[in-house]
């Protein structure tokens, strides 16, 4: 039973990771890639970690929880740093109908 659950979580995590990578390859500019890559990736990793922690001993569970909390705190900050750097260096948005409410302060 636990093995089946673990398998399901592993496949789910791999699917989410794959969607993240595919989105990263397909999106045209860095801002849209940010959404697909770093955030969709987070949930995939959490699913993989949960599958690992299901049958592990205490050491594995503590580490899995620790990595989850750490990623939950660091992925948004890393994404924000990348987005801010791109925005300040004025990297272009490649979708023609994109909206930008900050365009008037340049």
């Amino acid at each position: 039973m636990i093995i089946v659950l673990s398998d399901i979580l592993t496949v789910l995590g791999l699917a989410i990771l794959t969607i993240g990578v595919y989105g990263f390859v397909r999106m045209p500019d860095v801002y849209t890639q940010l959404h697909a890559a770093s955030k969709a990736g987070f949930l995939g990793i959490v699913a993989l970690l949960a599958s690992t922690a299901l049958h592990g001993d205490g050491a594995i569970i503590t580490r899995a929880v620790l990595i989850t909390v750490l990623l939950a705190l660091t992925t948004p900050v890393a994404a924000h740093a990348i987005g801010r750097a791109a925005h300040r260096r004025e990297e272009p948005m490649h979708i023609s109908e994109a909206v930008d409410e900050t365009v008037d302060d340049r």
Binding site: T32, A40, D100
Partner: peptide, 26 residues
Amino acid sequence: EILVGTWDMALRVVHLRDLKHPGVVR
């Protein structure tokens, strides 16, 4: 919110929802 957002993002990545209006808002 994360679950909903991931589902929405997945649909957009596989072309089931459109990707025409990304943008910067205040």
